[in-house]
């Protein structure tokens, strides 16, 4: 299904650039005239300008990545470190709990990160972390204006990320498993 589009050879007049220049001048002059006459795209769309009127974030916008909690207020992240692995600019840094780390605050999940840091100065907001996350624990939300006075301040730690991220009421995989196991009564299930 290759479609061959024949390119019309340019005439000598066209090859002097003159018609293209002329057309270009016409287009830019038209826009210039329009603007000088007072047309204003932003006003015509019924909006104002940025600092006064905050920018309207559209659906699917990739803002800053934050960690989310489930509807019970538990950390969703289980420290699988796939986001750390996939992160192209290496902005994510996870400290796994290790053998003697704190137990997960979510029953049955066994594991949660001891520390989770995202360096927002390195982050390129590509969304791969969100895409790779098997627990739906990290989302690129609609924050687009991230500023700080020091580099250290721009490294967001777990507490901050969780606070900014809010709640994501998704499937509670581990909780469902625990309930399913408890219902079977084949093996004793430790309920927290």
């Amino acid at each position: 299904m290759t479609k061959v589009v024949d390119r019309k050879p340019l005439s000598f007049y066209e090859r002097t650039y003159v018609p293209a220049l002329w057309e270009g001048l016409k287009v830019t002059a038209r826009h210039f005239k329009r603007s000088v006459q007072g047309h204003n795209t932003a006003k015509e769309l019924g909006e104002g300008y940025y600092p006064e009127v905050p920018w309207r974030v559209s659906e699917g916008y990739r803002g800053a990545p934050y960690l989310v909690r489930d509807q019970d207020g538990h950390t969703k992240c289980v420290s699988c470190q796939l986001c750390e692995f996939v992160c192209p600019p290496k902005a994510i840094r996870i400290t796994p709990p290790g053998p003697d780390g704190p137990p997960a605050d979510r029953p049955n999940a066994e594991k949660m990160p001891r520390e989770f840091e995202i360096n927002m100065l390195r982050c390129i907001f590509c969304g791969l972390c969100q895409e790779v996350c098997p627990e739906e624990a990290i989302f690129l939300e609609d924050h687009y204006s991230l500023t700080g006075l020091t580099r250290e301040e721009m490294v967001f730690d777990k507490e901050r990320l969780l606070k900014l991220g809010g709640v994501h009421a998704g499937t509670q995989k581990w909780k469902n498993k625990l309930e399913e196991a408890a219902a079977q009564e084949s093996f004793p299930v430790a309920t927290h």
Binding site: T28, H31, F32, S35, H39, N40, T41
Partner: peptide
């Protein structure tokens, strides 16, 4: 300014 006007900005 000129560039802004040409590009429909302010």
């Amino acid at each position: 300014k000129v560039s802004a006007f040409i590009q429909d900005r302010v």
